[in-house]
Design a protein around this nucleic acid. Structure first.
Lengths: 341, 341
DNA sequence: AACAAGGCTGCAACCGCTTACAATTCTTGC
DNA sequence: GCAAGAATTGTAAGCGGTTGCAGCCTTGTT
């Protein structure tokens, strides 16, 4: 029993409905030049026989895989999986498959831009990964459409937030509360070299400069977009001779780490140190973190949609989609205990 | 420029190395019965030409896709993505592709067990989803190997924790601190009908009964494994005439929601209400949540490994792998303010 | 009534790889 | 030195669709 019964093929449907396999193929895929009555008959047969085209065969014959790959630096981060949720929803609705890759090594990265991956997907969504010119060219010449989330690009569409503005919103908020010595946690050398941290640092500096303050590089501390990174950065900042009264963390996860470090020193948030993050992570509401909200799932759904559009019309121009942002004030920011000037 | 150049095929390698395509195929896949010298020559050609077999063609010819699908109730939960990280790492190392599906509707569920999915993957990893006998049979007869994470099964391998024991550890810990009125947040009618919540409730009840306490169903409050669910459940429990002095939440995410609700009432954790969760989520350390630790990523890697084993030896028997657990005491549990008896 | 123009269908050639089976070449035992 | 058996390699038939091209039927024209 449970023999792996040969599954029903297009030939079976053709026999059943009395037409050729070519007509079945055309009828089922909604191509023109099929008599309505024929199409109906074929559809009825297909349904009755529970026919499902073999994706491998279709792929081989057509050269299209109806699959898109998504490459992220790591799978265990909240941000990436939120994006993935958005991507998956749109793709599934359109009948596309989603292939997932973690790009956590050079070899994985090579796999992404060279042979293997390319033959598996029609499109690629990269998240917080910046491609080199060579890599972009390789993908383009292989016919793989790319959409970038997080990092901008000239050669393909991207969806991101205005990162400078994100930082400006956060820092302006802290300035308006009276803070003048504001730490920065989160820029730094990202292994994937993408520009989000740099843009956010620019925004941070813009606000300080516009207010006539001098930028103190001592207050800028690199950190991964992670809890651990935030803790490490905050520990450093709090140990300064003249520590900041507020810290702008480049992501909520970083901010949680910052808060942890503040608490570990017996200090209070926001009485001793104000903290503001970016994302509006699910737990931000739990701990009352003030943050710059962005709809991360929307990043994913927009990216998927842009890619699908590109499939139907390859000539469509690359667009830069900016997701809206907003300051969400909660309980981790307040006026500094001692106003400095 | 950037013309989509025809990529190099097995025929090109055959020509280059002066053998037939059949020999190339055998040589490159490491099959026996290929002269060492020939194999070497073929490998050298393949490498020089940058040959990568077309997965669609291989799939069509062999009937195997070297792809496994992973189905989760939702993609935006910490738990599922941790599992995914473990799965992806193992799969990628073995040269397998990972297809991801969110099973959030009946139609998605049907898609999983019937035609479409089955033709896309050799194996399926389901997380916190319990298959009906019909569904299992459908997959088996289609030749798809299944491994379950979270839910147990008789027909295929599963990896999970001893859920009764998880709950016992948590509740025993609370009892040892002196708590006698302990709330439960998290069991309840899961849309995917899986048994983790029920088993954990059993464990919870076991401890109470062993201690000679009567089970008060009023203290058992359903909730999704989410922050919102935890808040809702805790709000209900705290409104009881005789509220619990401690709450066992079935996941850390649930526990965070519980804590939120406690704080919202102006109460303190653990002084007024002790809280213990399950998972050891990344943020548990941040907020100091006492929890029952389980290595979720390991769930994924073990599941993937079991599946791969099954591919090489289909006759291998279904195993039930239990991931170790441990109580991690932090700062959300303490003796109750008033010891009742 | 003859003819051109479409609208539908079927034919058949791939797509690139796997794998039975046949063919050829080596080894070995005697 | 020769036949049998083992080790290699080649031949060719699929796998299940897609799609360019040709052929057959209707219709509408003149």
């Amino acid at each position: 029993m449970t023999s792996v019964g040969r599954s029903v093929t297009i030939q079976d449907v053709a026999n059943d409905s009395g037409v050729s396999v070519a007509t079945v193929s055309r009828a089922l895929r909604g191509l023109p030049n099929v008599a309505p009555s024929t199409r109906e008959r074929v559809q009825e047969s297909a349904e009755r026989l529970d026919y499902h085209p073999d994706p491998a065969a279709a792929r081989l014959a057509s050269g299209r895989s109806r699959t898109v790959a998504m490459a992220v630096p790591s799978l265990d981060s909240w941000y990436f999986t939120q994006v993935m949720a958005g991507v998956e929803a749109v793709l599934t609705a359109a009948g596309y498959d989603l292939l997932v890759f973690a790009i956590d090594s050079d070899s994985a990265r090579r796999r992404m831009t060279q042979g293997p991956l390319v033959k598996r997907a029609d499109g690629l969504i990269i998240v917080n990964i910046k491609l080199s010119a060579d890599e972009s060219a390789a993908l383009a010449s292989a016919g793989v459409k790319v959409v970038s989330v997080g990092a901008a690009s000239d050669s393909f569409s991207s969806v991101r937030v205005d990162d400078e503005r994100v930082a400006e919103l956060a820092v302006e908020h802290l300035m308006s509360l009276g803070h003048r010595r504001i730490g920065l946690a989160g820029h730094g050398d990202d292994p994937m070299k993408f520009d989000v941290p740099l843009d956010r640092r620019s925004g941070y500096r813009n606000v300080l400069e516009r207010a006539g303050l001098t930028v103190d590089e001592e207050l800028e501390r690199g950190a991964g977009f992670s809890v651990a990174g935030g803790s490490e950065a905050a520990a450093h900042l709090l140990d300064l001779d003249d520590p900041p009264t507020a810290i702008f963390a480049m992501s909520d996860e970083t901010a949680f780490g910052v808060m942890r470090a503040v608490w570990d020193r017996g200090l209070r948030v926001p009485e001793d140190v104000s903290v503001v993050g970016v994302d509006d992570h699910e737990f931000s509401a739990v701990v009352g973190l003030t943050t710059i909200r962005q709809d991360v799932t929307e990043h994913g759904s927009v990216a998927a949609r842009l890619l699908l559009d590109r499939f139907v019309d390859p000539a469509i121009e690359a667009t830069k989609y900016a997701v809206p942002i907003a300051l969400i004030e909660r309980k981790t920011t307040s006026a500094p205990a001692v106003i400095r000037h």
